[in-house]
Design a protein around this nucleic acid. Structure first.
Lengths: 118, 118
DNA sequence: GCTATATTTCGCCACATGACGAAATATAAT
DNA sequence: ATTATATTTCGTCATGTGGCGAAATATAGC
């Protein structure tokens, strides 16, 4: 129950949900998520910690970059169903489509360039 | 998206989730839910308003009693999948089983007696 | 080792939320 | 009509949450 409530609380914020669907089928570095959400790094970090604590996402560290990806399929059924539910419920919405358009543009810029904006 | 977020926010409270699974396969009068949750009537009323606003539950008025039931199957797919997800995720948990035991006792007392405890 | 960069942690603030009791509303019973 | 009962609405309070910037941490490159 506690585990389940951590998932529902993690899903109870729009920016976290948007991040979750942005991660479908790809990995994103924190700086890309910062760009995607348009929030301060500290805020994004907190959001990601909540998603990770709920086991909805996992991380991979590569140098000074940290990549987030959705939970692996071997994780709990509850988590997998949650992710699928989010995606299926929102993939047809306008917000999702706009977000995917913006994400594509962000992905065209490599993380290196995105993170060193000089 | 807004509709979806109302559902996730509604599910982000343990008492509302417990109420939702308590309603699986039955109708409950508010006074029964009050008894089930052990909260003040005003608090329960607010919780139910949130669940109703998210379209997770529906109501039926019978005299001075108001009965709550889960959303009818014709409602949105998102709602139906949410309800199924909650139930499938929790039906095996200890909390759920305890709650069902308590609920059975509450159901043995008819609403009339429960609401007029004299 | 020093500097730069990516991310997290901490401290703070504004606002949302869950709890209650009191008051309001609606219906039933006398 | 008056009273009793079921539920909701309102006002209030304590706590939780999302946002930020500053400071801390970790790694890469010089």
């Amino acid at each position: 129950m506690k585990e389940f409530m951590e998932i529902t609380k993690a899903l109870a914020d729009e920016n976290r949900v948007r991040t979750l669907y942005a991660l479908q089928g790809r990995e994103l570095c924190v700086c890309q998520i910062i760009e995607f959400l348009g929030l301060a790094p500290s805020t994004v970090s907190k959001h990601m910690a909540i998603l990770k604590h709920a086991r909805l996402v996992e991380t991979r560290k590569e140098g000074r970059w940290i990549y987030y990806r959705p939970a692996d399929p071997e994780t709990s059924r509850t988590v997998q169903e949650a992710i699928r539910w989010v995606f299926r419920s929102l993939e047809k919405t306008g917000r999702y489509k706009e977000d995917m358009k913006r994400l594509k543009k962000i992905l065209q810029v490599s993380p290196e360039v995105l993170c060193h904006p000089k």
